[in-house]
Design a protein around this nucleic acid. Sequence first.
DNA 1: TTTAAATGTCTATTGATATAGACAACCATA
DNA 2: TATGGTTGTCTATATCAATAGACATTTAAA
Lengths: 243, 243
Amino acid sequence: MAGQVQRQTGVALWRQIADRIRQAISAGAYDETGMVPPEMALATQFGVNRHTVRSALAALAQEGIVRAVQGRGTLIERKERLNFPISKRTRFNSGIGEQARETRGLLLGHGEEAASDEVARWLKLAPGTRVIRLETVRKADGRPVSSATSWFPAARFAGMRDAYETTESITRAFAELGLSDYIRATTEITAAHAEAADLSALELTPGAIVLITKAMNTDLDGVPVQYSVTRFAADRVQFTIEN
Amino acid sequence: MAGQVQRQTGVALWRQIADRIRQAISAGAYDETGMVPPEMALATQFGVNRHTVRSALAALAQEGIVRAVQGRGTLIERKERLNFPISKRTRFNSGIGEQARETRGLLLGHGEEAASDEVARWLKLAPGTRVIRLETVRKADGRPVSSATSWFPAARFAGMRDAYETTESITRAFAELGLSDYIRATTEITAAHAEAADLSALELTPGAIVLITKAMNTDLDGVPVQYSVTRFAADRVQFTIEN
DNA sequence: TTTAAATGTCTATTGATATAGACAACCATA
DNA sequence: TATGGTTGTCTATATCAATAGACATTTAAA
């Protein structure tokens, strides 16, 4: 972890350390164990006394973020980010569901174009086939969670743009166009440093991490209906793969 | 000045007070005298001992922002902010003008929606009338200065989104849509602590102050053409009301 | 010159912050 | 059951943060 705590700045060491640990928890640094490192390890890491670390952990316990258990360790109770389950029935809005009061999908741009080789391969179309492209940003409780570029076969989903703008949801837009159900066939997940476009679209700061998914949905007959490249603010989501 | 200092938060009182005074200086609160109020007056205002205020002023002197002169007072040496004149001809780009080498306006999001009661009242429309909403961030020399949400009557300014994205300027976008001149009719100014969205949009740190303006522009016939809620990084701007 | 108002300096006291060490209590596991 | 690792609690000490009061020094104005 980069950056040491600073002394004599008017900000108590225990507060600086609490802020750092809270951030690390949100970033998923301790997901493997579900626990914060032992107090002595943290004290060594930050170069302070164990009691100072205990003050920081006490503050986080007061916030309900961690819970110390004598003899075992300090368990992480709550992560201030959204869980995003990925399964055959992956949908953004129902996935976020009860974790946010309000979800919105904003259309930033759109177009109709010839399918690139990549898009054609995922949608199992001949290269050059006409596709509809939508650029969207999805928000939960006003916070941008992801920005996505999605392609749909133009012949089948000509009204996709209007349907999405009305419903603010891919699922509901599909329903309006006569596709009542669909299946998440494939999802690829990678990570990268945020690019300039991510910074504004997702309201990130330079150096932030984005999780990138490439996903393909099919109808119930296995025919591809959507290919999406989605970029998530890494400190606001985690993925859960369900089988 | 709203908001008192908080005790036992891990942030020393002298640091909270230093931050508040720095912000007040940036906001132009002491422009009439060019001096900070006397130590005893500040101590009374913040409800602390004079020595605590002296610690805060010593920190600001260390930063080169103020300079104490025995027998006279504490003089303001440097203000880290842009001047933002507000008048009938208020425009962001010409207002900042020579103070920055480069200004940009980035479109973060947009939409078309039914006017809320607040928007309808300001634009003098019937509630529910369609309006176009633009979410923008304005930068000067790469530093975010303000983030704004603006509403325009959809019937009259249908192409606002494209025009703004092309010109990166409300004034030039209006010109492209046939409105060559407009007048700043009303401006409301308030202040608040930065919210989570401000921190990323304006690249602020927790505890920072934002200045919030609610403004309405009209055409030369007095018909409202724009209502904006704009949030400024308070330590980077000051407003000057010109009549 | 006198006076008022402002900053500068000093002593003293209290509470919060941070370090140091020792040991108890508890848990998982060999 | 024995052991190692973890959190919980206690005492002690030093430093920082904040308050309180007194008085000196400097400046501007009456």
